[in-house]
């Protein structure tokens, strides 16, 4: 009799635990997938909605997807569409102004976000020249997607391409000169 009571109590505890777990599972997780539309305006609206719902962690993936959507219908106006979207994220407090600037400039500006800093080149750039050049190369690939494929801005993309090569040559010479000065 005592054993039966124990079994009933154990089953009751198990059932309670099961209800508790299933109760958590029914709480709706945020839906973070973007709508599958190929229209940039609609995709941006979808991204804004998702970000507003708490999917901020997916921001980088959204930008990546939006660039793909823009590349499907490339036009010079896409630059402004991305700028407006990034300004919105900044105004909404989802990204800092600096983060928004970095994202926009990485994809749509000739200048390289990877080549920045407050100290002189001998002190800051030369010790990590290889990494800086690798980062610039990677950024050029993003500029290709943004400037060239999404915004059809060939002039700016080819200028960025040339800037990368000029930077490589000039840094090679400058860093040798810096090193010679330290000998």
């Amino acid at each position: 009799m005592r054993n039966t009571a124990r079994s009933v109590a154990a089953i009751a505890a198990l059932l309670t635990a099961l209800f508790a777990v299933s109760g958590c599972a029914t709480t709706p997780a945020p839906q973070c997938e973007l709508s599958g539309t190929r229209d940039l305006g609609a995709s941006i609206a979808s991204a804004k909605s998702r970000l507003g719902d708490g999917c901020v962690a997916h921001f980088d993936r959204y930008v990546d997807q939006l660039i793909d959507v823009a590349a499907g219908d490339p036009t010079a106006d896409n630059k402004q569409a991305f700028s407006d979207f990034l300004l919105w994220t900044s105004d909404e407090g989802l990204l800092s102004r600096r983060q928004a600037q970095e994202t926009w400039n990485r994809y749509f500006n000739v200048k390289f976000v990877s080549l920045r800093g407050d100290y002189n080149n001998c002190a800051q750039t030369c010790p990590v020249k290889g990494r800086v050049m690798a980062d610039m190369q990677s950024e050029l690939a993003d500029k290709e997607r943004g400037l060239l494929q999404a915004a059809l801005d060939q002039d700016s993309y080819y200028r960025a391409d040339r800037l990368l090569k000029e930077t490589e040559l000039v840094l090679e010479a400058t860093c040798r000169a810096c090193a010679a000065g330290g000998r």
């Binding site: 200048k111 080149n121 800051q124 800086v132 400058t174 860093c175």
Partner: peptide, 10 residues
Amino acid sequence: GLKMTPWTLQ
């Protein structure tokens, strides 16, 4: 090398 930052260089 000494007068310019990476940004002013580009």
